[in-house]
Design a protein around this nucleic acid. Structure first.
Lengths: 225, 225
DNA sequence: GGATTATTAGAGAGATCGCTCTAATTGTCA
DNA sequence: TGACAATTAGAGCGATCTCTCTAATAATCC
């Protein structure tokens, strides 16, 4: 134990410690799952005692909820950055590659969270709210891109957003299903699919500008803002 | 199992009972998860006693493995049917709609299984093997379709198969993320994406028009719409 | 029918779970 | 410094977990 630090009646310090414990809990949940990780495990990982733990969190469930909140907040941040990028599709692909395909273990928790949400109404509410927010962000982007003729205006923004989200979810399972995944090639094919899916059909775009496209080489879809 | 003494009462009956217990276990696992469902729950659901349960299965883990095997076998069957259909994409869409989007609760177990595989090497092996088999089936189909000019020959069959599998995985999360999902519209957009992704680019389809082997059953991939 | 064996029931052992409680320790301030 | 409040440690409670064990029942063969 660390006895060397000088203690103060400091709410900042308290919050910081809470964060440390939450971090330890996340590590445990990644390793063993929501139900597999015990409060004792969390205490050991955080280097504290059970009583101490319950001084910072009222229950194990509260820890899980705090962790989900944190995860969803980080996720929303990432999406905001993606949607603010000059080339949204490229930014999305980079994000999928870095956070899902290269198997950051934290992504396991998304699978756990979804499975848990399917049977726990409390969690379901949180997931649904967060999904609605992300979908709205995507749909808003898609509408603007449609107005600018960069995305097929025949697509429904909400439905398209749902599919993009599903694609991101599915990508999380990829490295689990196939640890020897050829990441570069998969990203390339994802890019091809997205570009072909979203770009305006020939009839629409041909009127505006010439389409220099022969083979499967994808073209840049999105630029200015 | 004793293999030398088969003279006793119906091994068929024994196997049938085993199946019943497995079914009860699956219902419990769907409801509460692998770790959330206790052996007592399973016994209650199956209407038997603990000792009885352990007469049919050596451990809880064995039940889970038997269930995963069963699930993957059923899944492989479904894919074989899909790939044997006259219009593969339509068959795939119907399957996604019926088994994933309409929220058959059994699909939760896929999420559980993936999450568990991410931290349990034993499960990971099973999932990887099954995924490799399904991917091989898809890749084989894609290669044939490419030879017939129905699918863009610029696509790598394995990478494309991986993406299709990811799409199926992602579709499972859809109804959890959004219970008010407009299923029809989503299926329609999925269809659009798949068709645009897979069909040969204009130049190719115009140049090399591979014509029918009329006698053999045509693998119709894309319906002109 | 009597002997033998497969099958079933259910209590409960032993371990672990989430969580509580008391007491010791640390920091603050009159 | 001494009273008081905040914080921490860790034993352990009651519930629940997986799994075992003994004995009763059902099925089979002579």
């Amino acid at each position: 134990m660390e006895m060397s630090d000088l203690r103060k009646v400091d709410p900042v310090k308290h919050e910081q410690k809470r964060g440390e414990i939450l971090g330890a809990a996340i590590r445990c949940f990644i390793r063993d799952g929501f139900r597999g990780a015990s409060t004792t495990d969390i205490c050991t990982e955080a280097g504290i005692s059970p009583g101490h733990l319950y001084h910072y969190f009222p229950s194990k469930e509260a820890i899980i909820e705090a962790m989900i909140d944190l995860g969803l907040a980080r996720s929303a941040e990432r999406f905001e950055k993606i949607l603010a990028a000059p080339d949204v599709i490229e930014a999305l692909l980079v994000d999928i590659e870095e956070t899902s395909l290269r198997f950051r273990p934290a992504q396991i928790l998304n699978l756990d969270g979804l499975a848990e949400a399917a049977r726990n109404p409390e969690f379901a509410k949180i997931i649904e709210r967060h999904t609605a927010a992300v979908r709205a962000m995507w749909a808003d982007f898609l509408r603007r891109a449609q107005d600018q003729g960069r995305v097929d205006s025949g697509l429904d923004p909400d439905a398209t957003a749902n599919i993009l989200i599903a694609l991101i979810d599915g990508s999380r399972a990829m490295p689990i299903r196939n640890p020897k995944l050829d990441i570069g090639r998969n990203v390339e094919h994802l890019r091809t699919m997205l570009v072909r899916f979203l770009r305006p059909p020939e009839t629409e775009s041909a009127a505006r500008k010439p389409r220099p496209q022969g083979t499967s080489r994808p073209l840049k879809l999105v630029r200015k803002r």
